[in-house]
């Protein structure tokens, strides 16, 4: 464990806490893409299959349980909670995310570390996570004004993978055999997708103005 990875995991956890806070405090999920939340639940379920087979550390196990439980709870909340589901922007959240699932799964069948079910699902979860934010970014562009908590949620979600890139550089420099090309390349693509959001987020922070993504 190095400081970059810990910072990454804490930032990721923070993004989930901010999202839970927004939904719980405002009893609303307006501005949040259910499709992105479903994709993230799929990412965690596909990646953490080894939860019960390989014990790595208490920290690792706890974080996996937290990520799976929170992502499923958010999907449940947005689909079934009587009060929250009414505020879901169904007509704006129209990204065809099934293409993302199909495309990344095919890619995982072709590009993986080993042609075993667990490795294919792991690669699938890595590729899917890289594009999972797209429905959310499209929704933000469509809904125009972005409330603070939603903006912070997306910001922390993008920042965590940037910390992981620093972690991979650090591990590459300090560990003789460290090579994780699938995660590294996918992580760079993932962080790149946030680039324009980060730009507008920084502008809105500098001008102390409302975050507005161009349509």
């Amino acid at each position: 464990m190095n400081i970059f990875r810990l910072a990454g995991d804490m930032t990721h956890l923070l993004s989930i806490i901010v999202l839970l806070l927004k939904i719980y405090a405002t009893k609303s999920c307006s501005g949040i893409s259910l499709k992105t939340q479903e994709l993230y639940a799929l990412v965690f379920l596909a990646r953490y299959l080894d939860l019960f087979t390989d014990f790595i550390s208490v920290y690792n196990t706890i974080m996996k349980v937290v990520f799976i439980a929170s992502s499923l709870a958010i999907v449940w909340c947005m689909r079934l909670h009587p009060l929250v589901k009414r505020s879901y922007d169904k007509e704006l959240d129209t990204f065809r995310h099934y293409f993302l699932i199909g495309g990344t799964f095919v890619l995982a069948l072709v590009l993986n570390e080993k042609f075993t079910l667990q490795e294919i699902l792991w690669a699938f979860s890595i590729y899917l996570e890289a594009v999972a934010i797209l429905p959310q970014l499209v929704l933000l562009q469509r809904s125009g004004n972005v409330d603070n908590l939603t903006g912070q949620y997306v910001f922390f979600l993008g920042a965590y993978r940037a910390f992981y890139i620093l972690n991979w550089i650090y591990r590459y420099l300090t560990e003789p055999r460290f090579t994780r090309w699938i995660a590294c390349v996918s992580g760079i693509v993932q962080t790149g997708i946030y680039a324009d959001f980060f730009y507008y987020y920084f502008i809105s922070w500098k001008n102390n103005s409302k975050l507005k993504l161009p349509a």
């Binding site: 990875r5 995991d9 550390s57 995660a183």
Partner: peptide
């Protein structure tokens, strides 16, 4: 295989 022991990341 070496990839297994690197699955220590979340």
């Amino acid at each position: 295989n070496d990839s297994a022991d690197f699955k220590d990341e979340l």
